[in-house]
Design a protein around this nucleic acid. Structure first.
Lengths: 334, 334
DNA sequence: TTCTAGCCTGCAAGCGCTGTCATCGAAGTC
DNA sequence: GACTTCGATGACAGCGCTTGCAGGCTAGAA
């Protein structure tokens, strides 16, 4: 910056004021400074300004992984919104217990970002307390945190509508498949299952625990086993509702392998509206992941700027049932 | 830090030395400082240390988007490696021309990270020159940059082996589908197509341009059109090689819709080994995306530490042909 | 002309760390 | 016992910016 000042024949203060767009700089000086800065390809050292202002110009995001459809879509929504705000994006992906302990122990985000977005992260009470220690604004994304700024969808209501759709098609035996939560990171399945069960209860159907099934991760034949178990029940389901589209894709593959026709013999409904859902013709509940990311950033900005009430604002985004080919009426006589 | 020093009854210098793990601190002092730091939940202000050391403890990643399988997998590989190195991850997703111009104009990464990883980003010469201006180490990921540290797979060789596999199965009419490059961001398709063509040439087959087809993006019926065009050729292909698995998934859907059996009537081969490829039973060329990310970080670390020769090291990771159910011999008499 | 009110601009004091140098005491040497 | 050596610690000067304050300059008012 001193170089720029020298080249423009002004003081560093003036360069600083110019570059930050303060209005107390005359047009001629501004022009000189700007061209000097351009000629020298000057870029400000944020560390130095942060030190003075206490602001980092960075937003940190904490998520349980980076490779899932939902999370990468949410990030995609955040990126342009952040750029527009002139903020940089710092990503903390914390997957295993070890990393997790490390993160909450060292709190690396502290004083290293202006806000922390906690995305789809089921926090323990201790972890939550630790984050409160951070001394930086927290925004919860894809999860509801009482009294805290949050952006999310109403999973329970969405699942309720999904199951209702199946009920309306005439299904009475509806199974619910969820992922087996190995890591303790899952969070939404509870709400989705709750919505499903509520729809059944509303319809006067009794809850049959043998129709709720947990399926282990990607590897292995967990899905085939689950399908086998369901299809060999005394009274097998005519519809299968999965907690996520990912699960539904695997389910569709397993059903195809088992020569069970969809939606002829069973209907399948997912949750997410993953890009592949269209390709696979999967009926699903669309949750606006990109929009969620974008909105989260908007909320974060107002939290940082300390706008009125932003600190406890809750934004609930809508979900949509997207009917495709994987659902239909149950087989007659079924 | 002053607080910690006061509480531990030592000077800030000693706190600094302790927290950085320098060995010139006695065990008793170290213990006192560490517990004081813990009690106060102290976390260092990186801005301040950066200002002194000139190191930010951050690595920036430039990528064309965040939501593709490959890029999010690569990020997944980077995250743990970075954490281990105590580095933070700064993500710049630059998708449209406007963002792109902005990024290269303002060079926000400059002095804001210790290195920049350029991932799958087809740079214009001007952009490349601009990055050279950065004054920070560059590492190219999933692309080869002459004379620069790069980590990538040999797309051409992989595609060559893919096509060779189809040839070995007996196919002679093999089509190649690539995405239509709307944005100018694509880069690998050229190499993959080159490998495909080379395999054909090696087998003494003449190149038939009508078998190379560009398919527009996700929206619309581009894929159905492409399939229609190929299948109505005088002599239609018996095998279809797609530039990416994503494309292959859409292709499989289109073929199913068109009642073309796979691999009975046509074989389909993808490229990537996307998570869904297993589910879909797609034969594909696996590229180790996660490993690519991890390796890129390892290389970045040695570039930052200025290890011998790191600045021009090239690491080529292997690809694997993964045979699954979507490929088989051509229909007899075909 | 002299005075006052603005407008710009420069000066200088930090922001919270790191790293050099000086200091101090204890242990080792002869 | 006097001297050296060395390990452990503290003092202090910045790193590159921002920002309150002071000062110089111009212009309109008296």
């Amino acid at each position: 910056m001193a170089d720029v000042a020298h080249r423009a024949g002004v003081s560093v203060s003036t360069v600083s004021r110019t570059l930050r767009g303060l209005s107390t700089v005359s047009d001629t000086t501004r022009a000189r400074v700007e061209s000097a800065a351009r000629e020298l390809s000057f870029a400000i050292t944020r560390s130095a300004s942060s030190l003075v202002t206490g602001r980092t110009g960075r937003v940190a995001v904490l998520m349980p992984n980076l490779a899932s459809w939902f999370l990468s879509s949410a990030l995609s929504g955040m990126a342009p919104a952040l750029r527009e705000a002139g903020l940089d994006l710092l990503v903390y992906s914390v997957s295993d217990v070890h990393e997790r302990a490390d993160f909450f122990d060292r709190l690396p985000a502290r004083r290293n970002a202006d806000a922390l977005l906690v995305v789809s992260f089921a926090l323990t009470p201790a972890e939550r307390a630790r984050l409160d220690d951070l001394g930086m604004p927290l925004v919860f994304v894809s999860q509801h945190a009482p009294g805290r700024p949050s952006v999310y969808v109403d999973d329970e209501d969405a699942a309720l509508r999904g199951t209702r759709h199946l009920l309306n098609l005439g299904h009475r035996r509806i199974a619910f498949l969820q992922t087996f939560d190995e890591t303790g990171f899952a969070w939404s399945s509870k709400n989705r299952l709750a919505g499903h069960l509520r729809a059944l209860a509303d319809a006067g159907l009794e809850h049959d625990p043998s129709l709720v099934m947990s399926v282990p991760g990607w590897k292995g034949s967990g899905m085939a086993t689950a399908v086998g178990r369901l299809m060999s029940l005394q009274s097998p389901p005519t519809a299968l509702f999965t907690e996520t589209d990912d699960l539904a894709f695997r389910l569709l593959a397993a059903l195809r392998a088992a020569n069970v026709s969809v939606p002829g013999q069973v209907s399948v409904m997912g949750f997410d509206d993953h890009v592949m859902a269209g390709v696979m013709g999967l009926t699903t509940l669309a949750q606006p992941a990109v929009e969620l990311g974008r909105t989260a950033i908007a909320l974060t900005r107002s939290v940082i700027d300390d706008s009125d009430g932003a600190h406890e604002r809750h934004i609930v985004l809508p979900t949509e049932l997207v009917p495709r080919g994987s659902t239909g009426p149950p087989p007659t006589g079924g």
